[in-house]
Design a protein around this nucleic acid. Structure first.
Lengths: 251, 251
DNA sequence: CTTTACTGCGTAGACCATACGCAGAAGCTA
DNA sequence: TAGCTTCTGCGTATGGTCTACGCAGTAAAG
């Protein structure tokens, strides 16, 4: 394997660093560093994750960490990759693409919800770290044999994972804002609608006023809205797959 | 209007601060501060936007800015709201919901592309600042009279804007990564696929290998993939709207 | 035993946001 | 006109952040 060609961060993530045996033994492992970072992030949020904080948690000095990780952002990338964990079970042999892809999307959401700090780590590129690649694989697996082209399969997967990510972002942001202000999420929502009503009262906002006039429970079931978007996307994909299946000569 | 009840940041964004005339005249306006922040962000990226940087750009001291803005993040929110600018034209009287919503989604993408730094500012909640509210209004306008319920209209809009945002994120991230490494985006893409091939070679990644084996141009048209996802989502929404129209008694 | 490579880490530099309080300016009131 | 009040800009200071650099010591190779 061409370890040499791979960038440092990728080699690190895949455990492909050629370690010569000379010199003192390391007192830590990369896994320990990453795990400690995750622990701090989970307990006190991403802002609490500083190099000095992680170091002191491990009982070493700040600069020691740079023997394990080239830069802080590489540490964050590694943290995200391990915290995401493995994807949910792949499509079973007799399973259709749709429930498999739905489970995959749901898995994305669950992972982000379980480790809420992850949503604040910017995605640095296409999936290249071990768990990311596994997720990628399972996503593609769901779409195997659907007649979708390569770029279409990729786009579909990105569509679903992007939706999970943005959904996790806004729902978690709202929940945290509520927690910070010591109110229930319902109260925060109510206050929002009231503020919006006050601000839009003088101006020409017919659609918003129409919305506000409509009685709506604003979260009957918490995840019903998530489901709504997911089903819409899957419906759209299904339309395409069906049209391909009925008239494949056209492609 | 109940200015009193509104939080500071919102009152600020809508220009509803009761300014008594006592004391020295201010040497700046909030608009100037925000505009300067945008200027710095546009020219040198979001990390370059520090309070001291914006202040020195305006020829005042760092701490003076805090007379205009309660906290840095409020400044960022205001920057995003004004930089987003007004939405594209709303649905015309004889226009269908679909082209209107497509234009709206495309507008989101265009805005984020024009001011790429905006994607790094975390969304702090539901739309409440002036331009955000205008965008919200126009999005809802597109879905007027489609038979979708209130929560469904909101979910649909969030689906589209979330997609635009995540698409902008990954496409801009890749472009910037390419620019940083002095390569063309194509070269970066090629290198990625090669790395992925190397890393997945030993393991069980059938779907990825299948993908890699398929010849694909990987961006014939740059925005074809964006279009793909958008059309899928709109197809899904259209299915729902059609089903509602044909059997409304069911709802 | 020397050479070599690697370790942890102390120091220091260059940033960052923002709490606090002061001097002076400008309007309102007497 | 005098004084009070309020608001401005800003100097100072606190307590962080990441990380470049270089040194002392360790452990294996020759």
């Amino acid at each position: 394997m061409d370890d040499v060609e791979l960038p440092e961060n990728i080699a690190l993530a895949w455990g492909l660093r050629d370690r010569s045996s000379r010199g003192p033994k390391r007192s830590l492992s990369l896994e320990q560093v990453v795990a400690t970072g995750i622990q701090v992030a989970q307990a006190e949020g991403l802002p609490a994750v500083s190099m000095s904080r992680v170091a002191s948690e491990l009982g070493v000095s700040t600069m020691s960490l740079y023997r394990y990780v080239p830069t802080k952002h590489d540490l964050l990338d590694l943290m995200v990759d391990t915290a995401f964990g493995p994807p949910p079970p792949p499509r079973a042999p007799d399973e259709g693409w749709r429930p498999a892809l739905a489970r995959w999307g749901e898995g994305n959401l669950v992972a982000l919800r379980r480790q809420p700090w992850m949503r604040h780590v910017a995605i640095s590129g296409p999936p290249i770290n071990p768990n990311q690649v596994r997720w990628f694989e399972y996503g593609l697996l769901a779409l195997r044999g659907t007649g979708l082209r390569a770029t279409e399969r990729i786009s579909t997967i990105m569509l679903v994972s992007g939706y999970a990510r943005s959904w996790a972002m806004i729902s978690l942001d709202l929940a945290e804002a509520a927690a910070r202000s010591g109110q229930t999420p319902d109260e925060v929502g109510l206050r929002y609608w009231r503020n919006l009503a006050v601000l839009t009262a003088p101006g020409p906002y017919p659609a918003i006023h129409e919305l506000l006039a409509e009685t709506f429970d604003d979260e009957e079931h918490p995840d019903e809205e998530w489901r709504f978007g997911l089903e819409r996307m899957l419906d759209g994909v299904e339309m395409l797959i069906r049209s391909r299946a009925s008239g494949p000569a056209r492609g």
